[in-house]
Simulated scan of single mutants.
Amino acid sequence: MDLLSNPAALIDQTLLLPTATAGQIEALCEEAVEYGFATVCIPPVFVPLAADRLYGSTVGVCSVVGFPCGYNSSRQKVQEAADLVAAGAVEVDMVIALGPLLEGSLAQVEEEIAQVVLAAREGRVKVILECCYLTDPLIMRATEAAVRGGAAFVKTSTGFGPAGAVVADVQAMVTAAAGRIKVKAAGGIRTFDQYLQFVAAGAERIGTSAGTSIVKEWLARCV
């Protein structure tokens, strides 16, 4: 791993708290431009604001669909995805419905993903599995469904479940993805050492609310 590479390029700097304010989103966007994060990942209501603040920069706007539980109807998720991209999001992180997956209805999971991908049009879709509820075989089957559904990424966690990202889960996802889609690790990643662990495991995007401190750690230690 190249420790001289700025970690910001792989980070979705995230603020999804229910108490988030417009002022906090504006500050997040300013930090994202300053540090060079891949995207800001924010609540849907703030997408137009962030798209305006980040216009002309290299930082993308990411938002969420079916968040955080995933049990919205497929029709609702499709509409959410279409609305987000129309408002300026370039990436959409969707939560799958866990019930069908746990019951073995992989075709239903795949179809919902495919519908959201179609609705997002040019927007890249990341499929959130909430791995803390799943066994390794289910993680791998869900990753395969994400591949067949046309997603760009498969993602570990919302950060709102009982556990966040786990290295072993990322490794299972990477194995199942087999280079066909990318893997995003998110949930509880707050230090540069954790960042390194997940990137070493194969994650190509990191979701965290601690992006600024991670980059500062990198600057202090490696530059």
Rank of each mutant, 00 (worst) to 15 (best):
V116C: 11
A220T: 05
F160I: 00
A81R: 10
L219D: 09
A38Y: 14
V117T: 00
E217A: 09
T21Y: 09
R53Y: 10
T208F: 09
A200M: 08
K182S: 15
I189M: 02
A81Y: 10
T191Y: 08
I96D: 07
D169S: 08
Q76T: 15
G60Q: 10
R148G: 01
D93S: 11
Y71R: 06
P162Q: 11
L134D: 03
V65Q: 02
V223H: 08
G207T: 04
Y55S: 15
E26F: 03
C222S: 08
A22Q: 15
A38R: 15
I11P: 06
C222V: 10
P44G: 08
P68C: 02
T14Q: 01
A203C: 09
D12V: 03
K216D: 12
C69R: 10
L134T: 03
F198P: 07
T135F: 02
Q108H: 09
R124Q: 14
L49W: 03
C69M: 12
R190L: 04
M94Y: 10
V199E: 06
T208N: 05
P18R: 10
V65G: 01
T175K: 15
I42W: 06
T135L: 12
T156G: 12
D93I: 00
L28G: 09
E30D: 14
C41E: 04
A114H: 10
K182M: 10
V154G: 07
V174K: 03
G66L: 08
L4H: 15
F67E: 04
C69L: 14
L10T: 15
A51V: 06
L118Q: 12
V199N: 00
I189H: 02
Y55H: 15
Q194Y: 02
V64G: 04
L84S: 03
A8L: 13
V64L: 11
Q79A: 14
F153S: 01
S74T: 12
L138A: 10
A89V: 05
A50R: 11
G150Q: 01
G187V: 05
T158Y: 00
L196F: 00
I11V: 11
C132W: 00
